[in-house]
Simulated scan of single mutants.
Amino acid sequence: MALLVKTYAKINLFLNVVSQRPDGYHNIETVLQAIDLFDQLQFSLSDALQIQSNFDIALKDNLVYKAAAALQLATGVTFGACIKLEKNIPLAAGLGGGSSDAAATLLCLNKLWETNLSLEELKKIGSPLGADIAFFLGKQPTALAKGIGDELFSLSQNVDFWLIVAKPDFGVSAREAYDLYDKNPNKDGLVDNFTKSLAGSSVSKIASGLYNALEKPVMEAYPKIKKLKELFIKAGAIGAQMSGSGSAVFAITQNNVDAQRIADEALKKGYQAFVLRPSNYTVKICQT
């Protein structure tokens, strides 16, 4: 049996840093939205763990391999798997691509290896690998996340909008983004006000409520990210914001014509750009 899976990216519509924890992590409040930019993975049984991919990364840094190895360790299984990864989600962009791939790996190998772990058990295995893994395992395309990002509350999202996601020619690690934040903290966002706007039907209310506490310190360190946001606003986006720890920035429009026009402006300036919609899936098994 082989499993073919699509693993979707996310954006942070809202991100507030609540406090720094004794373990060095941060407690946050963030509203996550899955978007229809996805990687594809194929899983089949094998004698050993094998990863084939269209991008080059050491196994020790590959979240797909680390998730598979963690599941092996937790369950004691001796099976292997051949995992083929087609990477489309940009790396180190704040879009959760690695976490999405890791979540799919836990879900699919749990099925392929017949380990029969519950969703909560998979979340415990995935948590040390990445806080966003819980969101992608949860299968709720719009969610409020608290704690380190692993306490999830499903949200209704009733607003129809288009997105442009663009990334400069460099990435920003989550650790660096939070280190920059700790030197220049700010807590101006109110998550309850933002979640109410999701339940309405106004694109402008969502756009006006966008907030990311990491954005200001990261943009001060990386002016090119700030210039990308300014490009979006100047080109007519209703709202724009850095996603997660960056370096990607997303913009919101009401229609695909405006979205494509704005994406073309970003492409002309040398940014990688995508025209997207919100997704109904975090992980989707397409073929068995």
Rank of each mutant, 00 (worst) to 15 (best):
A48W: 07
A48V: 13
L49E: 04
I51Y: 10
Q52K: 11
S53F: 09
N54Y: 07
N54C: 11
N54T: 07
N54A: 12
D56S: 14
I57S: 12
A58V: 11
A58T: 13
L59A: 12
D61R: 06
D61F: 06
N62H: 08
L63P: 05
V64N: 02
V64E: 02
K66T: 01
K66R: 15
A67K: 00
A68Q: 10
A68I: 05
A69M: 01
A70S: 08
L71R: 08
L71D: 03
Q72C: 04
Q72V: 04
L73R: 03
A74S: 06
A74Y: 05
T75F: 03
T75S: 03
T75N: 00
G76I: 06
G76C: 05
G76V: 04
V77K: 03
T78C: 02
T78E: 01
F79T: 14
G80K: 09
G80H: 10
A81R: 14
C82W: 07
C82Q: 15
C82Y: 13
I83T: 14
I83D: 03
I83R: 07
K84F: 09
L85W: 02
L85M: 15
E86R: 07
E86C: 07
E86L: 05
K87A: 03
K87W: 03
I89Q: 01
I89H: 00
P90Q: 01
A92S: 15
A92M: 14
A93P: 01
A93H: 02
G94H: 00
L95M: 06
G96F: 12
G96D: 13
S99Q: 10
S100V: 12
A102G: 03
A103V: 05
A104G: 15
A104C: 13
L106P: 13
L107Q: 15
L107H: 12
L107T: 14
L109I: 15
L109P: 13
L109H: 15
